[in-house]
């Protein structure tokens, strides 16, 4: 699925990384605990989260993720957006809640991919 389609499906604002909207991603995960993302996620390209702080971007960066979706209308501060821009990560912000956002993307073919144990 193209990152741009994720933005369309979630009626999300694109806060940075507009140049990457044509890039394809194949899996996603939803989490508010970054420790769990670092522990159990493998090769997911999209992180859907309600947590807003710079460590969300750092976590995505370490995991080689390409896109972060902030749910429930949460807006990251400028320094968070700038950090993502420097790392080449797209930031989307949607009014959808976590459950709906995950459900909409799953229903449209963006699955969770592999989980490392």
């Amino acid at each position: 699925m193209k990152i741009g389609k994720i933005a369309d499906l979630l009626h999300a604002d694109v806060l940075c990384g507009e140049e990457h909207l044509e890039n394809e991603v194949h899996s996603a995960c939803g989490a508010d605990m970054m420790s769990d993302v670092l522990a159990f996620v493998k090769d997911q390209a999209v992180l859907i989260t309600g947590l807003v702080n710079p460590q969300v971007v750092r976590t995505a960066e370490m995991m080689d993720m390409r896109c972060i979706v902030f749910v429930r209308g949460k807006m990251p501060a400028d320094d968070i957006v700038e950090l993502a821009r420097e790392s080449g990560i797209v930031i989307l912000a949607t009014m959808e809640r976590m459950y709906q956002a995950c459900g909409i993307l799953y229903e449209n073919g963006l699955y969770h991919g592999g989980v490392a144990q």
Partner: peptide
């Protein structure tokens, strides 16, 4: 509250 402290650091 910041997304850490789940007891996964050292095991990870």
């Amino acid at each position: 509250a910041l997304g850490f402290g789940a007891g996964m650091g050292l095991p990870n």
